[in-house]
């Protein structure tokens, strides 16, 4: 155990080499100057230097304050900021300025806005596609309270990949994602898949206290929606006020889960301790 908390001691497979931060730092300064936010920075992602250095960026739109309170997430909740009408232009400028081949656009959940922010998602996608038609665009969305109209709005904006994360098994939703609903999240994926025009992606974390047989059920539920791409990663506590890690899952188990998912019919699976939803997303897709 870690002597400072009840969290188990961080195992050797979560060790990273010292990074060469030069390229990542330049990219970070560029994004700051362009007034755009990333989930990479706001979630304190451990892969940020590696991803930034390889030109993988996940933009965070609709502000930095979430209206929901998931107990694994680094992003603060509360009363959100006003929507920035210049956000589509700012994100599009950053994507083209950096020459990104793949861009992930994600957001906080905005239950305070009637369309949940789907309109701004669509505007950002359209602006990015207009400025960088060759760039593959993935949206990683909240559940829009299950609004099919909102999901359609995002898909019709011209995305290539629609992503919505399941995050954990059904039993742990009330403790870990109290404002989300397991079935509703599956419905989001199912409806997006029914459009037939985009690739569907989802992801979840392990190490939150889920059981092995529950993972099997989660994999089948996600597959049944029509989802093709999947990411599985270790939950890592972003700050002291968040849930403690229940277990560090061994790399061998990640490999087994990947094989199980591929057997079920997922087309692509990234599974490993440091895998995140958007980890090296461009390479994963392209």
């Amino acid at each position: 155990m870690n002597v400072y908390t009840d969290t188990p001691k961080m195992p050797s497979w979560l060790k990273k080499g010292l990074p060469d931060s030069k390229t990542a730092k330049e990219l970070s300064r560029y994004l700051e100057a362009g007034c755009v936010e990333t989930v990479c920075m706001n979630s304190r992602c451990p892969n940020i230097t590696e991803c930034y250095s390889a030109g993988n960026v996940s933009f965070l739109i609709l502000g930095k304050i979430c209206t929901r309170n998931c107990l694994f997430c680094a992003i603060g909740n509360g009363r959100p900021e006003e929507i920035d009408p210049d956000e589509p232009v700012a994100v599009a400028k950053a994507v083209s300025g950096l020459g990104l081949k793949y861009a992930v656009i994600t957001s906080v959940t905005r239950d305070d806005i009637p369309d949940g922010g789907a309109g701004l998602f669509a505007d950002v996608v359209k602006a990015v596609k207009k400025a960088s038609p060759e760039t593959t665009v993935e949206t990683l969305t909240p559940d829009f309270n299950g609004s099919l109209k909102a999901i359609d709005k995002v898909i019709k904006a011209g995305i290539d990949v629609f992503s919505h994360n399941m995050e954990t098994v059904a039993r742990l939703y009330p403790q870990i994602r109290p404002d989300f609903d397991y079935s509703r999240s599956l419905d989001v994926l199912r409806h997006a898949a029914s459009s037939g025009s985009v690739v569907i992606k989802s992801g979840f974390m392990v190490g939150l206290g889920e059981l092995e047989e529950e993972i099997g059920g989660l994999l089948r539920d996600i597959k049944d929606t029509g989802c093709a791409f999947l990411t599985i990663g270790q939950y890592l506590r972003p700050k002291n006020s968040r849930l403690e890690v229940k277990e560090y899952i061994r790399p061998g188990r990640f490999r087994d889960m990947k094989e199980e998912a591929l057997k079920l019919g997922f087309k692509k699976v990234a599974s490993g301790p440091f895998v995140r939803s958007s980890y090296r997303a461009g390479e994963f897709f392209l």
Binding site: K16, G17, L18, L236
Partner: peptide, 25 residues
């Protein structure tokens, strides 16, 4: 260790460790 990863820091040079300035924890 940080919240989300562990790192090994290598010694920048060969030598004898005269003083450890920061303790474990």
């Amino acid at each position: 260790v940080t919240d989300k990863a562990a790192f090994n820091v290598p010694s920048p040079a060969s030598g004898v460790i005269k003083k450890i300035l920061c303790r474990e924890g």
